[in-house]
Design a protein around this nucleic acid. Structure first.
Lengths: 205, 205
DNA sequence: GACGGGTGTTAACGACCATTAACATCGGTG
DNA sequence: CACCGATGTTAATGGTCGTTAACACCCGTC
């Protein structure tokens, strides 16, 4: 039922090409930083490393971000915001079964396409300074609640705390992609994760 | 079927108390380091932090370990060795169904009792220096293969690469405990994870 | 053609880090 | 009691880090 075709990276026939990002350097730095933070951890990647990864020296980064913490904060805010917004749309399906499949499909596609982002999102929240950490946490909680609401309709008997714990455990399963060393291709891995997660959420006790 | 009673921390009626560890300070440092590495990452916890956590100054640590890397290496070697040895015993059950339950029970009990160790084991392998990193990888692979062998008997049709990927995904689910903020008590959480993992491994596609 | 904002660079700063050196204490053994 | 290894301490060393300062270039606008 689910399908995870190879990522559609730039169909040339697409009529309206997406507008180029307002600040391409910022996006470039964010992408490189995600890779480095995922591989070596926030404290293990220096400003010099981030700059070098995009062909610059370290201090050049301060022309685009207030500092190292701001890079991480913007990265996590973007991820949690996208997940939450996308999740709200998908969870709105009146059929809870289809809603769950849509949530699974969205999350799996995102984590297959952005393993580094998922890793950082999962590990580095504590290094975000306080005003923004709170907002990120809020978005993460809201995203979880979208899942909980769908699962609640699907399994009415289950107490709320168990439902929420089950959703968190499911995220652990879905977010395991980066550690799997990609022995399977994208489509097979997507189908596998989808099947396992659906079974895990609907088939226990 | 599975049961996860509250951790039996020191029954006073136990006749043979475990021999006190050969070097209690080493064990104390390792435990504190696990907590710090899990919370702040390997590069985010300094030698001074590790010492302070056990009531010492930073340099005192060098009386017990060759350096910071040696602390991490010994920690990961110990974890991967224990998981692998325990896994080999549990996987030996001739009934694959019971073997899987035993593997699940062992892993879940370990991760419920040692969330910090599981976190570090999952994240910090890259910071271990080379002679020992290879050995840790070997033990991790051997542990995975115990699971793969059991699951292969349980689901004969499944190709090996998908079986292995499923085991990795299952670990992601089981190791999610530390992120779950422990809203459930140990027994309920253990049962939940057991049920979800079993459903995930046996119920997909 | 002067100007100014945007985007780089190198040099310099203070803080912190892992590690080592030099020295102190203490319990047990000759 | 002298000695000694185990286990601490503080002080010092060399390196790296995040950040800022000072300066240079490019490019579109008046």
């Amino acid at each position: 039922m689910p399908s995870y075709p190879a990522a559609a990276s730039g169909d040339p026939r697409a009529r309206e090409r997406p507008a180029p990002p307002a600040h391409p350097r910022r996006a470039e730095i964010l992408a490189a930083a995600a890779e480095l933070f995922a591989r070596r951890g926030y404290h293990g990647a220096s400003i010099g490393d981030l700059g070098r990864a995009v062909g610059l020296t370290g201090p050049a980064l301060y022309r685009h971000f207030r500092g190292k913490e701001a890079v991480l904060a913007e990265m996590l805010l973007d991820i949690s915001g996208r997940l939450r917004a996308d999740g709200a749309v998908r969870a709105a399906d009146p059929d809870p079964d289809r809603a769950l499949d849509a949530l699974l499909h969205g999350h799996i596609a995102f984590s297959l396409d952005n393993p580094a982002l998922i890793t950082v999102h999962e590990r580095e929240l504590d290094n975000v300074p306080e005003p923004q950490r709170h907002e990120i946490r809020r978005l993460q909680r809201a995203y979880v609640e979208e899942w909980v609401a769908v699962l609640r309709r699907l399994r009415p008997g289950l107490p709320d705390d168990r439902t929420r714990a089950a959703v968190h455990a499911c995220f652990g399963l879905l977010n395991s992609t980066p550690h799997s060393a990609a022995a399977l291709d994208r489509a097979a891995m997507g189908d596998l994760l989808h099947g396992m997660a659906r079974a895990a959420l609907t088939g226990f006790s």
